[in-house]
């Protein structure tokens, strides 16, 4: 049970980072931390004690496989995470060029 709680704590660490950090890049990093805590949770859900990698071979008879579906989900989610992170970084770099700073306190044109 401990590991599940730890992954949830990691999620909260990411959330804390997003709320408190003032630097665009640090916000992106916090988002990544949040994301990966969920990936860890997903892999943990699929884990079975004593299970081996779910690859069919002739060597092992009646093997216990770990659940492959969460792993497939994590792989897909990593690809999506790559796209979102790339998008965020691209926007952050462009913001830096327009404003000359990564500080979100100085980037606030939109209000109301």
């Amino acid at each position: 049970m401990m590991v599940y709680i730890l992954s949830f704590i990691l999620f909260l660490v990411g959330l804390y980072g997003i709320i408190t950090r003032r630097n665009l890049i640090k916000i992106v990093i916090s988002l990544s931390i949040m994301e990966f805590s969920i990936f860890i949770l997903l892999v943990l859900i699929g884990y079975i004690d004593g299970g081996i990698a779910p690859i069919i071979t002739d060597q092992v008879i009646n093997p216990t496989y770990v659940d492959p579906l969460p792993q497939a989900m994590v792989l897909t989610a990593i690809v999506i995470g790559l796209a979102t992170t790339a998008m965020l970084m691209a926007i952050a770099i462009r913001l830096y060029r327009k404003y000359g700073t990564f500080d979100i306190r100085e980037i606030k044109n939109l209000k109301g």
Partner: peptide, 20 residues
């Protein structure tokens, strides 16, 4: 596809930096 996409992302960021 993945190799090309990652390369495109990397190059896009680099070219943008060069332009600055």
């Amino acid at each position: 596809e993945v190799a090309a996409a990652l390369l495109t992302i990397f190059l896009a960021l680099i070219i943008y930096k060069e332009e600055i």
